[in-house]
Amino acid sequence: MKSMILGGLAVLALVAPAFAQGSLTVYTYESFTSEWGPGPQVEKAFEAQCGCDVKFVSVADGVALLNRLRLEGASSPAEVVLGLDTNLTAEAKSTGLFAPHGVSAEGLTVPGGWSDTSFLPFDYGYFAVVYDTQAVQTPPASLKELVEGDPNQKIVIQDPRTSTPGLGLLLWVRAVYGDDAPQAWEKLKRRVLTVTPGWSEAYGLFTKGEAPMVLSYTTSPAYHLVSEKTDRYKVASFSEGHYLQVEVAGQTVKGAQNPLAKQFLQFMTGPGFQDAIPETNWMFPAGKTDKPLDPAFATLVKPAKTLSFPPEEVAEKRKAWIDEWLAAMSR
């Protein structure tokens, strides 16, 4: 029976490439490909342009994306990987699985500018605590207030081992507390209702009313303003500043052999892709869009200060910091 299955798989493996002509395999995270995410719109627009078939393969969140890729190694079918962030680019590059993108980043504007030759940014945002005004009267005004606040007022966060927002919060706490981060986590832990593997689950819990606060982005209220016409959900502006996330995509070594991969990255920098970003991914577009942003985006919290670590430092310390987090959270 086992040999039958193996045999069947072998046949599949032989047949599959025959269908693969004119197709592009894009690895990304779940909320990108969901019904409400940018995926469907982007897929349609690009397929119209290239006359090819785009196949999205999605995993829980950005960090899981990198894990999946490392696990599959050189035999991964991924040709474009979309949804890593700058905290992961150094580690991603060191896998040797990525090829230079060869696309000009000229039209792209992200805070701090762009010079990476392996990855191209497609959007950016700032991590933030979003709260429900019906449940929270006095939101925390700083990370310190969040850490030391009432343990009965809960927050949902994401797991830094799988999720880029989770990793973002880990780095945010690091940036503010330095080596005292483990102590801060031990305090914050009391307010954490649960740790979810990805952003979608956490935000789902929050909007269902399970928790009055969630780790998300400064741009999240724009969704509620534009799509739901409500200002019920707001961002707590933190005096220490907000941690920056730049989301990137790149082509794999395998993808470099498929001209569609580069074409996709080129397409990503243009309005066909960028138009979808603000009101499906709810982030700031890195490239030019055809029409201006909805006025709701102008009402959002602007971080007093932008925090970030160099990708190399994150690559070097991520494991140790996550171990610290695990130890603190399990205490």
Binding site: A64, L66, N67, R161, V192, V195, I322, L326, M329
Partner: peptide, 22 residues
């Protein structure tokens, strides 16, 4: 279990492979 506080060895094995890739 709901988070790292209530994790057993078997779940940690799963997480080490699927979350951390370690």
């Amino acid at each position: 279990g709901g988070g790292p506080r209530a994790t057993t060895l078997e779940v940690a094995i799963y997480q080490a492979l699927r979350f951390d890739f370690d």
